[in-house]
Amino acid sequence: MATQLGFYFDQTRCNGCKACQVACKDKHDLPVGVTWRRVAEHGGGSWQSDGDTFSPSVFATYMSTACNHCERPVCAEVCPTTAMHQRDDGVVAVDDDLCVGCRYCEWACPYSAPQYNAELGSMTKCDLCTDYREEGLEPACVAGCPSRALDWGPIDELRERYGDVDAIEPLPDPAITEPRLVITPHRDAQMTGSGTGTIKNPLEV
């Protein structure tokens, strides 16, 4: 099997600016509503008050996510036309000629990675900027992150370098799709399934 590619995200560096999201949109000419990389804000905690004073005990983190080019791409599994497929390098991609825009992949993916483009009438998604990579360039989101919070590469190498954490709230249980994603968690990150917070910007993701 060829090298399998994935993403790395350093949550400690993310300020939620979404340069990654807009770099992706500029690169791929994506309209509003079709957003291959998104950033969720997860947070919670509480406050105490005593007379005229107050004390916070709160937390918040950002999570930038595109397609995780999963080991088990459920999007491809449910695709009735085989338009959604996984390449040798692990990149999950859409064959425009085969896609009928039924959006079943969109429903299946727990990361909301495949997105319907109404103008095209078909599904679209992150392909890890295949054309850029062929030229030796970084994917647009990686090159565009002001804080250098993103990286990409063979998942084995990413795991060797950065560890194997991939179950951070508000991400779903990685057992569902086995994402090729490695995260360096923020000090306030919570493990998926044991989180006490909520998504604070639900309309943005």
């Binding site: 509503g33 079709v34 969720a40 959006r103 969109e106 429903w107 993916c109 727990p110 990361y111 909301s112 997105q115 319907y116 483009n117 109404a118 709230e169 508000p170 991400l171 779903p172 998926t192 989180g195 998504i199 639900p202 993701v205």
Partner: peptide, 11 residues
């Protein structure tokens, strides 16, 4: 497309 997509699925 927007309304179907939801981060609720994430968690």
């Amino acid at each position: 497309g927007i309304s179907r997509r939801s981060f609720l699925k994430w968690s």
